[in-house]
Structures are given as C-alpha cells and as structure tokens.
Simulated scan of single mutants.
Amino acid sequence: MIRTRLGVVKEITGTRKGLTECLVEAAGEIQRAVNYDELTGQLQAGDQVLLNTTAVYKKLGTGGFHFVMANLSRPEKEVQPAGHIMKMRYSPCQVKVLSVEDPDSPHAAVMQQTDSLDGTPVIIGTLHSMLAPAAAALKKLGGGRLQVAYLMTDGAALPLPLSKLVDELKAKGLIQQTVTCGHAFGGDLEAINIYTGLFACKAVAGADVIIAAMGPGIVGSGSRYGFTGVEQGEIINAVNILGGRPIAIPRLSFADARPRHRGISHHTRTALGRIALTKATVTLPKLAPDKMETVLQQLEASGISQKHQIAVLDAQPALAALQEYNLQVTTMGRGVTEDPEFFLAAGAAGIYAADILSGSKSADSTI
C-alpha cells in the first residue's frame, strides 16, 4: 500500500535534467522531496502537492525523501505528440516515450538494419556504484578517446534522473550517452528491452564500450535468487546472442560484515554460476594472497571458473582515476578506503575493456 500526504512546496533546492529537488511542508514538518518533471511537471514555491511518503515512513533506503505524485496547484499536463511506447504501463505513472524502435523515431531505420554488436565490449555490473570506477578506468586508460554508453536497466530505480552519479559522469565526459531500457526511462535514448537497448548503444550512440547496470536502489534479500542484480546472468546471455563481448564485474568485498557477501557475493555466484548460460570474462583485481585464495575457491566451488574466463590484473589505476576525476563514490555507505576490493573489481573491468580496444594486454593471468 502507498502512504500519501498533502504538502506545500517551500523551496526549490536543486534541479537537473528531468528532476527537481525541493523542501516541502507536510504534517507540520519541513522535509525533502523529489519531483520527476516528465511525470508531474514543473514545480514552484507555494505549489500544493500530493506526496508518496511510504519509504521515509518505513525508513527504507531512499535517501530520506518523499516523491511528488501530483502537483495539485497545476494538475493538467500536456502529453508531447511523439512516441507510442508507454513505460510503467498500466500504472498511474505510466509515461510515454519515443523509443528507438518506434517508426516515428529518427533512429528506426538504423535499428532495423542492426543485428550484431560486432564484438563490442559490454561491461556488466550489478550495483549502480560499479559504474563510476569502470567509467573512470575507461577514461584514463582509453586516453579520453572512447565513446562510452551507459545502458540502465529497470532492475532498480526506473527514472534515470534520480542518479546524481550519472549526471556527474556525463558532465565530466566519462559517459557520452545514456540509454534506458525496459520500464526505466529518462535516458538520452529509450529502448523497449535489453536487446534493443544494447543495439541503441552501439548503432545509435556509437559506443566503443557499453556499461550495462541498473540504476540506484537495488533490491536484495538473504536468498540466493532474491536480488535484482541476478539480471547480470541474463545480460551476459543477451550480449553473446547479439555478438558482443561480455565482461562481468563480480561483487567483491572483504569489508561487508555479512558472511554471504564476503569475498565473491553469493548473488554473483548465482548470477554467473547458475543463471549465465554463456561465457563471459570475469575480471578480478590483484589481491593479497589470502584474499585471492578465498576468491579462487569460491569461483571453483560455484562453477564460475569452469564456465567463464577469469582475468586477473592490476586495477590500481582505476582507483587513481577515481581520485583524478574527483569521484566520491560509495557502496552500502562505504568508500574506497573502507571497501577497496569492491571498487578495484569494477575498475578492473574498465581496464580490461580498454585493453581490448587498444590491443594491449594487462591481465597477468587467465583461468
């Protein structure tokens, strides 16, 4: 069920493409709220709004803000004429987009003609925080020449404008284009599913490298399959079906207190060991001998090392790139200092992809 409250916009505190942040007065308190401009239009101080307050009330991990469901001061909105595809279909928030497959799209013809990724490297992550080290490594090792497209799936947040990280990466030139697929929306390009999303990255955005991962706000549980990031296995299959080159980022940590996430997370072991039916390259950073032994044992026991190629390489340049581009990224509240292996693993994938495109080889070993 949804918990709703009426509120009044007191102050606009920030804007970026597709999103407005504000302070609202609700139930006698001043609280933060987010408005998606494509759904509920523009806001201004004094507007009366209907708020979804469920997540804050339940103390869920949404950053401590409400979501504007409707602007009651200006309730009527005009739908733009282009596009026939609805996302978030049959919900009160369904939104119309011009997808790349749509006959009215200027990209429809090239999409019809595209049937292969032609070996394009596709880095596949599970957490949104993996995006920054992978993109930073690509920028640094690729000499700034690579065209990088981010394909955001609908495994977590559906509106891309929620991601401050993507906004920052685009502003700093680490990502050139964004594509949102499935029910995710708000990218530079819209696509119906993961397959056409990948083609849009390659054929329309002109990507040399694609990074595919969900947006912020992943859903997880203690069960092996109860995690939206297991989509990693299905994306690997899709990339191989389309003739791309999948590079999988393992979720790696020695800082997480939960035993199931120590070393290679049990969710990664499920996605790569059980769900992926086709081969990928799984990149690992160099680790201390005891940590590497733990990881290799997990890869063996889960069947990952038998099914996939494992590449081990020095990923320290990725951490240097994060610092060089002043990216202050965290995962589960932990930064690079607290959880270096997580960021090294994601950065290793970016380094490996850059090496593929340059023809060099930085992997010390493959398994």
Rank of each mutant, 00 (worst) to 15 (best):
A26W: 03
L50T: 08
R32K: 15
M1V: 12
I2A: 06
T20A: 05
G28I: 06
E29M: 10
Q31Y: 02
E29F: 07
E11F: 11
Q42D: 07
G18M: 10
V24Q: 05
V9H: 04
K10L: 13
R32D: 14
Q48A: 09
T13E: 08
V49G: 05
N35W: 10
G7F: 09
V9M: 06
V24E: 03
G14M: 02
L23K: 13
L51T: 08
V9K: 07
V9T: 05
A45P: 01
C22I: 00
Q42G: 00
G41K: 04
D47Q: 03
G7I: 07
L50H: 07
R5P: 01
L6I: 04
M1E: 12
G46A: 03
T40Y: 01
V34E: 11
G28H: 08
V49M: 06
V49T: 04
M1S: 12
A27N: 11
Q31F: 06
A26V: 12
L43P: 02
T13A: 10
R32M: 10
D47T: 02
T4F: 11
G41E: 03
R3D: 14
T13L: 08
E11I: 04
T4K: 14
I30S: 13
Q31M: 13
M1K: 10
D37C: 02
D47C: 04
Q42S: 09
V49H: 03
G28K: 07
I2L: 13
T13S: 12
K17H: 12
V34M: 11
D37A: 05
E29K: 14
R16P: 02
L43D: 03
R16W: 09
L6G: 09
R32Q: 14
A45I: 01
L23D: 10
N35E: 09
